[in-house]
Amino acid sequence: MATDPTQAPSSAAPTPKDSYVKLAMRNMVRKSRQSLVHFGLTSLGLIAVLLGLAFLTHH
Rank of each mutant, 00 (worst) to 15 (best):
H59L: 08
V49D: 02
H38C: 07
S35E: 04
P9R: 08
Y20T: 10
V37Q: 13
L50G: 02
L44D: 02
S32E: 10
T3K: 07
L51P: 02
A24H: 10
A13N: 09
G52T: 11
R33K: 11
G40S: 14
T3S: 06
T3G: 04
G45R: 02
A54L: 14
A2R: 10
V37I: 15
Y20W: 10
R33V: 09
A8C: 12
H58T: 05
K31L: 07
A2E: 06
K17R: 09
R26P: 03
T3D: 01
T57G: 01
I47W: 12
A12D: 15
G45L: 09
K17Y: 08
A24K: 13
T3I: 03
P14K: 04
L23G: 01
L51A: 14
G40P: 04
T42Q: 11
K22V: 15
M1G: 11
H59S: 11
Q7V: 07
M25T: 12
S43E: 09
Q34T: 13
S35M: 11
P5W: 00
T6K: 08
L50F: 11
L56C: 06
S19E: 00
A13R: 12
S32G: 00
L23W: 00
K31Q: 08
A54M: 13
L36P: 01
A48N: 09
T3Y: 00
T6S: 15
S43L: 15
H58A: 13
P16M: 03
T15P: 06
P14H: 07
H59Q: 12
T3N: 02
Q7P: 00
K17P: 00
L53N: 08
S35L: 02
S10C: 04
Y20I: 08
V37W: 09
T15S: 14
M25G: 00
T15E: 13
K22P: 01
S43F: 14
I47M: 15
T15W: 08
L50P: 01
M28H: 01
S32M: 03
R30K: 14
S19P: 02
L50C: 08
M1D: 05
V37D: 04
M28G: 00
